[in-house]
Write a protein that binds this DNA or RNA. Structure first.
Lengths: 231, 231
DNA sequence: AAAATAGTGTCTCTGAGACATTATTGA
DNA sequence: TCAATAATGTCTCAGAGACACTATTTT
């Protein structure tokens, strides 16, 4: 028999769940893990786990990211989404509140399942909506993708999907993949180059087939003014 | 001796804290309560309390709103901000994660302290930053105010600060109070009246000193396109 | 009639979107 | 030289901001 109260406060477990997004061959992908434990054994879910007694929510998100995706904070940008606490969102007897995070990274490596996961893979986000994810993870995923889409409009967050040096056409493919719509290369270049603090010239160029592209690094600005608007 | 684990999960308490904002005589105010219990006995804090074992986070926010401010969901708009879970944010032995909410209402009544509060009052937001609030409530308050400021730009949320029928100048005072900057009446009227679904003509006018103002109700739109920008 | 408040129009400038051609490289 | 890709400029339209006067009511 599990006690429901240890003190004057109702007892909760607190979890973090991660919406880890990256671009692979020009498509937006999310990291999914196959659950290796009950409940929802064998079902696909967002990576995540319980917060420990001695770590902050942020620390827990970073730890799960390392455990379940092999990623460090140097690789990614992490931002809290919101918390989910419906009474029946977890079938276990404990109340479980989950704090969801959005995690963005550039060209992240193939995952090796770690922690509690039986398997892990990158899934195109437009295919993920067809998968019956565990818990309320479908809603969390939708919120995470929508947050990423919205933040590309008025912040410089798109650079989180890019390597340290990148070209304007490369940055444009990020916007196109996340927003799911094609953008005019001329208008796009004009706008991002005009936004002060967004891109700084790295003084180098790409090589490869076609005309070399000028390379940039992320500038110091975090807000985009004026914003780039979706269609 | 309080057990730290009841099961395989670390034990947390989950609280909700409310940033309740309203306009009083043209200034943005926040609801503060004086704590009637330890910890932080006698200190001003945001209203809030622990989530019960059988209620959702949303239900808990509504319940605390009723208990500590006498407000029902008909009176206000409620939106989750984010969660705060630093290891030392609460001095009690239990880990306490708090889910913060932004609550907006029109001309809310004077509070009568209820629940655990010794006292309660409306405090101008620009004076609240001078008060040494309990826990990490100063940071939560700042986040709540910033969220409200940002959302006035691209949503129709400003109507949450208005009674059911209101004039364009009245709506303008909302924007001016929340943003803390004066707006041009002509440009403001042009923009809000052009935004389809923001305002619908109520077919009535105010009476009082000066030329009567045309009254509007909130329309069905929730997003503002194009957005109104801050200076 | 005076005081108070609401309502409205124009001009200029900036940014958005539509649109095609030239430049540079590797194969 | 051809294929691939990057870079760039102009025109038109919409929205933003600056700006002053007229209209309607109460006292």
């Amino acid at each position: 028999m599990i006690p429901v109260f240890t003190s004057e406060f109702p007892v909760f477990a607190v979890a973090v769940d991660l919406v880890v997004l990256t671009l692979r061959s020009g498509r937006l992908h999310v990291l999914l893990v196959e659950r290796g434990e009950e409940p929802y054994l064998g079902r696909w879910a967002l990576p995540g786990g319980f917060v420990r007694a001695d770590e902050s929510l942020t620390d827990a998100a970073h730890r799960e990211l390392a455990e379940e995706a092999g990623l460090t904070s140097d690789d990614v940008v992490l931002e809290q989404l919101r918390s989910y606490g419906g009474v029946t969102r977890d079938p276990r007897p404990e109340r479980v509140v989950s704090v969801a995070w959005m995690v963005l990274g550039a060209d992240l490596p193939d995952p090796r399942p770690g922690g509690d996961a039986a398997d892990a893979r990158w899934c195109p986000v437009d295919e993920a909506s067809g998968i019956d994810l565990a818990f309320d993870h479908a809603a969390i995923l939708a919120d995470g993708v929508e947050r990423a889409r919205a933040k590309l409009e008025y912040t410089t967050l798109a650079t989180a999907f890019c390597p340290s040096e990148f070209s304007v056409p490369q940055l444009r493919t990020v916007y196109e993949a996340v927003w799911g719509e094609p953008l005019d290369p001329r208008n796009f270049a004009r706008k991002v180059l005009a936004a002060s603090g967004f891109l700084v010239d790295a003084g180098r160029t790409t090589s490869g087939r076609g005309r070399p592209a000028r390379l940039y690094r992320a500038g110091l600005a975090s807000e985009l003014d004026p914003p780039l608007r979706r269609g």
